[in-house]
Nucleic acid binder design. Sequence first.
DNA 1: CATGAATGAGGCTTCATTCAT
DNA 2: TATGAATGAAGCCTCATTCAT
Lengths: 218, 218, 218, 218
Amino acid sequence: MPSKTFLNLSEEKRNKIIEAALNEFSLNDYNSASINNIVKVADISKGSMYQYFDNKKSLYLYLLELASEKKLNYISENIDIKSDKIFNLIKKMHLVGAKFDLTNPKYSMLIINAINETTNDELDNISSKLKEKSDQFFNKYIQEGQRNNLIRNDLDDELLSFLISRFSMVLIEYVSKKYNFTYLDLIKKGENKLPLPEKELEKILKQFITVFKDGFKV
Amino acid sequence: MPSKTFLNLSEEKRNKIIEAALNEFSLNDYNSASINNIVKVADISKGSMYQYFDNKKSLYLYLLELASEKKLNYISENIDIKSDKIFNLIKKMHLVGAKFDLTNPKYSMLIINAINETTNDELDNISSKLKEKSDQFFNKYIQEGQRNNLIRNDLDDELLSFLISRFSMVLIEYVSKKYNFTYLDLIKKGENKLPLPEKELEKILKQFITVFKDGFKV
Amino acid sequence: MPSKTFLNLSEEKRNKIIEAALNEFSLNDYNSASINNIVKVADISKGSMYQYFDNKKSLYLYLLELASEKKLNYISENIDIKSDKIFNLIKKMHLVGAKFDLTNPKYSMLIINAINETTNDELDNISSKLKEKSDQFFNKYIQEGQRNNLIRNDLDDELLSFLISRFSMVLIEYVSKKYNFTYLDLIKKGENKLPLPEKELEKILKQFITVFKDGFKV
Amino acid sequence: MPSKTFLNLSEEKRNKIIEAALNEFSLNDYNSASINNIVKVADISKGSMYQYFDNKKSLYLYLLELASEKKLNYISENIDIKSDKIFNLIKKMHLVGAKFDLTNPKYSMLIINAINETTNDELDNISSKLKEKSDQFFNKYIQEGQRNNLIRNDLDDELLSFLISRFSMVLIEYVSKKYNFTYLDLIKKGENKLPLPEKELEKILKQFITVFKDGFKV
DNA sequence: CATGAATGAGGCTTCATTCAT
DNA sequence: TATGAATGAAGCCTCATTCAT
């Protein structure tokens, strides 16, 4: 979505722009985010911004793509898809995903905000698309689990992947509630460090997986 | 939150205003919703609107209260809290909740939008408050279930209620995905009728409950 | 300026309205003062206010008249015009005037604000009129002093009365600066009590009179 | 306070805007002055104005600074501080100040209006600040006069400078009263020319100084 | 005589985008 | 390629006043 001009920019300048835009779009929803603010913070002219990106939407979608790519890369770099049993695999996916979110709160928040953009016509259902993508990602593993008789077959695979997918989206919310911090704090502080010991994160995930595997009942 | 002036209005006029505002706030997030639009549709002057409500926020919170009240009333009228076993009770709650959402899509969408207002400082964390309230509502039943040894005690009750609570928020999303309609359609058409047979709704819920009760595993 | 209706009101109600209006007009200049606010605080309907007074200006001028009258009464009650020598008389006038201002800050502030209304066409030069009135009041005494050879005759009597008159308008400002309080504080606290010992007020006035009588020079 | 954008404008355009704003703020108090009016007269779009200045206050403070600077420059260019005896110096200061006011009525009126802004919280006590500055300016000379035994030491130097300072603020008022013109006339006509012979101005000032030096008494 | 609902003009401000240089 | 000045629609909100009941 960005012009060649943008891609030819020095990395430093490009990053400054991305950083400024990321900040704005992670702290505001699409409509409330302001291009004016972004160019001010990035210290570039408005004309330049519109030479790099056709319009607000284009910039937004580019950032979103960047964030998605970054997250996917992080996950695929930190997980060994094949090695494990299904429930362990799912646990690891969530663990790695959560670690990405917590150490890249701006990117993560951007994606969350996009998922919340349910009413904005201008963005052609970006929210639905993102959710669908996530649902389908998990669906592969669910189906495989069912084929291997590790996951019960009397339940709709779409339902199961929907559940897993949605809960991957609120996991951080639970963690932050339990450990008393907010995304906003993480974003404002700057990032990089886990706000809780990894062991604790794993404990929570273990419980999550137990629920999904065995259910609530005694 | 509304002034006496508003409450003294003829019911017809009051409803026209509520309807117009509801429409705007269910189709747009808080910032994007426009008072100008609302007064145009309600066919009143801007000055009047501001004699009814102190400001945009006040109108919004009033609508939200209205919606919450309406939903709670609907649920308490359609459910017999005491009569049932825990998992049946939860199933019924969700069934009734879903029925409300599907037959009152504007009110429902308003609440959903409020839950998505995670970035708007002006609304003093309305999203968190709503979620917290829902979490605590379910927590009571979870704790009771644990006391009665119907729900396992080795899992954090907050985690379990968090899961149930969040699930109640996305249930309709799954239903609409499965039955190929969208909230927007329901809102635009006008309301009242379930867009799918109640039996089907129950079937879906039965599966959901099975998952929560027994888990994914074979 | 008020209607008979207003004058026939119970004293209590009338005072409530006056008090509310006084508050608004002492804390805001004419344009910024809001009838809406006044009726809200006075707890009467807008319709009533417009039955008591033709319009904003009419209410304002009424209050101003009230304040002027009150101040003049206070002064004439607390001073024995004839008994004294000219400079003593002037000193006493200022002392009494200052005491009125400090114990009736709302009325006083209203008058000060009116004197500051130099740009508002709507008020037909109320500021000039008030100043002129004050100038002429002092002019009588200056002329008499000159006739009696107590005040030098080589200086324009208008200039001298102008100086005395303007000084009377800023006296409180100096006092409040010297004694570290503000009109706003007095108004907000409620009134009645001198914020400094009367002796101190007299000391300041003694100096002032010395200046006017004998000048700066050694 | 203005943006670079504004400073980069052609002098012609910049002056047109300043002129329009000056007009509005000299003829109206802060609250009553209208940005809408200004942009209409200056023939620019509202959006442009807000690219030049952050907000109304910023524009206002810029004009005020401009006016203060212009007046100070005028005074320092037309007076030889060192050469004179104290009372002569004070007379000259007032003469030069009065000449500035009469030949730059818009700037002068703007400052006077600012001094009258006693009730507006938004302007953070601009009135007090301006007065204090003036008081302190004169205080230096009063203190020096006292050190050199030209001004009596039995009177509070703050009181003396307060008096001189306040009377510098009303001098023009007396002149215009005596010579039958108004600021408004000067502003509306355009400026530049003294509305009375300089000799006459000097005569008035001579009397003023006599009062301050020698007092009223025979 | 009291009420209070209705009004619409006008207030300040922000916005995404364009285009001549 | 970069710039930054220009725009005008739209945002929320306040106001003094009127008039039917």
